[in-house]
Simulated scan of single mutants.
Amino acid sequence: MKASVGRYGIWSLGLRSEDPARRGELAEAAAELEELGFGAVWLGGSSGVEHAVPLLGATSRLVVATGIQSIWQYEAAETAARFDALETSHPGRFLLGLGVSHARLTDRYRRPYSAMVEYLDALDAAGVPAESRVLAALGPKMLELSRDRAAGAHPYLVTPEHTTLARGILGDAPLLAPEAKVVLDTDPERARATARQALALYLTLPNYTNMFLRFGFTEDDLTNGGSDQLIDALFAWGDEQRIRERIEAFHAAGADHVALQLVDDGPRDALPRAAWRRLAELLR
């Protein structure tokens, strides 16, 4: 899977839609991303296997991954059946990203680690191979599970320092594909304001704020939308060289693949195709 996903991918809420009227738009966007050289697209939000169908049908090489499917929202048996159908029609091109979400986002949240183990057990029994799935992993226990029961990890909203930790736990073989946020803006005040708007929700979720504290940030860094230090650690912004260097810092820290999320002041479910073209150009 490492070779298939390549060095860069696109993470997008906009590529996940249940509106039949958007299928053509999504297919066209996916085809262009493949042409631009991205190896994978990650369907943001709690995406399911079914959301990958129109994108896989419109492309020939692109890997489509869920980033992330909530184990509370989709039963394992349903997921396995849909995976089997998709693997039959598009072998080796779908990556099942799984996560435990957050307590405030689902009333089913309980014993997240044990629940993930049970879910993986059910997928194993249904024949879904470990090499076709990755886990949303932030802490050591889930990273170890990513190493032992999946193809690797897809950590979200992390820094290169977290990538170093993750690689140390995973070892060399598993896929490490962190998500990284990019703001194509050279104005510091405006770029940080855009970043803070995107970060607001995550500052209410203990899974993330506890991680930030473990990596040396303070409670003060988490107030008022996030300190400049926190924003600059989590978002690549500035001129092309600065953005390129920030993205490459993840590779230097041990990432195999970086899933890039374009952040701007538009709707979160938009398809920023012009910005994706700019990003592809600066990565060449």
Rank of each mutant, 00 (worst) to 15 (best):
Leu135Pro: 09
Ser17Thr: 12
Val183Ser: 01
Trp11Lys: 14
Glu144Cys: 07
Leu176Gln: 03
Tyr109Arg: 08
Tyr8Asn: 08
Arg22Asn: 07
Arg110Asn: 12
Gly97Met: 07
Ala173Phe: 02
Ser146Lys: 12
Trp42Met: 10
Tyr74His: 11
Asp185Met: 11
Gly238Met: 14
Thr204Ala: 10
Ala40Gln: 11
Phe235Met: 10
Leu205Tyr: 11
Gly92Gln: 11
His102Gly: 13
Leu98Arg: 10
Ala31Gln: 12
Lys2His: 14
Ser12Asp: 12
Arg110Val: 13
Glu245Tyr: 02
Asp84Gln: 05
Lys141Gln: 05
Ala30Asn: 05
Ile68Met: 14
Lys181Asn: 15
Asp124Asn: 11
Leu271Cys: 14
Ser89Met: 05
Ser17Pro: 07
Met142Gly: 09
Ala166Lys: 12
Ala180Gln: 15
Val182Asp: 15
Glu118Phe: 03
Asn224Leu: 15
Val128Asp: 05
Pro140Ala: 11
Glu161Cys: 02
Arg214Leu: 05
Leu283Ile: 01
Val5Arg: 13
Thr88Phe: 05
Leu135Cys: 08
Asp239Gln: 08
Tyr8Leu: 13
Asn207Glu: 06
Ala173Trp: 01
Gly24Cys: 02
Ala253Arg: 06
Pro267Tyr: 08
Leu138Val: 08
Asp148Tyr: 11
Ala81Glu: 15
Leu98Thr: 08
Pro155Ile: 04
Thr79Tyr: 09
Leu26Cys: 00
Val53Ser: 09
Phe83Asn: 00
Gly48Asp: 10
Ala274Tyr: 02
Asp107Leu: 03
Gly24Val: 00
Tyr119Pro: 10
Ala76Ile: 11
Ala80Cys: 14
Val100Pro: 05
Ile68Thr: 14
Ser4His: 02
Gly9Gln: 02
Leu201Asp: 03
Leu120Gln: 10
